[in-house]
Design a binder for these strands. Structure first.
Length: 284
DNA sequence: CACTTGACCTGTCCGC
DNA sequence: TGCGGACAGGTCAAGT
């Protein structure tokens, strides 16, 4: 599921709800999902929630941090005590928790429960010391955050040029080029920039890099505004879907008319991933 | 070295 | 209704 906007939506939602709560209990239903010593965080209080690329971090007051990656199908769903029905944590859209995809359950000091659900079991949670976070190689090697002020097309261009012979859509999904862009927003950003996703990086001009940077920022921001993209799995921290895909230009719209020119949207595979574009509008 | 494919898992959908 | 195959928001490792 989740790319930058979806993780950001969860981060913002959890921020107002679990800061200051302490972790009373952790139930690990799927051992492979949880790395590190869960006892190290019991009794500690959540003091800060952050996001880097598609990784969510929860810093605790005992010097440890919980890192979460939702990969393809992960969810973080919080159920407050007043939403329990007949003793069971229950939400309107996601039903009774835990369900058959629940891998880890956190219980907080106010009796709220946070469910890590993950149908495909690719996602993970790990416990490490806050001081070690900056030494994690998967965080160190990440490219710039596209929604931070410092992000500009020059940096994007410089990073993309390390993959000159790759199709542009594949290159912008590389987390070392720009952080947080995945399969949905790579297609959407190429559409906004009017660039065919198959075009090799080496063929792009400065004007193309500029519009690409703009397209990345625009698609990510728009998605956050709509609460993210829900194809099959994504829900926010209280179990609600996001509606970006209702307004998407190309992703998931194979055969349907382009919203700008009415040409049917094409679907191809690039690096094994479904890729959508308008063959008429995206002519670079 | 740069790039593609397969693996990791579970589930759904579509064609025969 | 059943069965096989393709496909699904991500990332690694292995192979060419």
């Amino acid at each position: 599921m989740p790319e930058l906007p979806e993780v950001e939506v969860i981060k913002r939602g959890l921020d107002s709800k679990i800061i200051g709560l302490s972790i009373q209990q952790i139930d690990i239903l799927n051992p492979k999902t949880f790395q590190g010593d869960s006892k190290a965080v019991l009794g500690s209080k959540i003091i800060k929630i952050w996001r880097r690329a598609k990784v969510l971090g929860m810093d605790l007051d005992n010097g440890f941090s919980l890192l979460v990656h939702l990969k393809m199908s992960g969810q973080l769903v919080l159920v407050a005590k007043d939403r329990f029905i007949g003793g069971h944590p229950t939400l309107d859209m996601t039903g009774v928790m835990p369900n058959k995809s629940t891998r880890v359950i956190f219980e907080f000091s106010n009796e709220a429960k946070l469910f890590f659900n993950d149908q495909r079991k690719f996602g993970w949670i790990k416990v490490i010391k806050i001081l070690e976070v900056k030494n994690q190689k998967f965080l160190q090697s990440l490219g710039p955050e596209p929604l931070e002020r410092g992000f500009g097309w020059e940096a994007l261009k410089a990073n993309l040029l390390r993959h000159k012979s790759q199709p542009i859509k594949v290159a912008i999904m590389d987390q070392e080029v720009v952080a947080g862009v995945g399969n949905i927003y790579a297609s959407e950003a190429c559409f906004l920039a009017k660039i065919n996703p198959k075009t090799k990086v080496s063929a792009l001009t400065d004007a193309n890099f500029q519009s690409l940077a703009k397209g990345i920022i625009e698609s990510l921001n728009k998605s956050i505004d709509y609460g993210g993209s829900s194809k099959a799995h994504f829900v926010n921290e209280v179990g609600e879907k996001g509606y970006y895909l209702v307004f998407a230009n190309v992703y998931g719209r194979a055969g349907q008319p382009c919203l700008k020119c009415h040409t049917p949207i094409s679907k191809i595979a690039l690096a094994g991933r479904g890729t959508y574009f308008c063959p008429h509008c995206q002519n670079v």
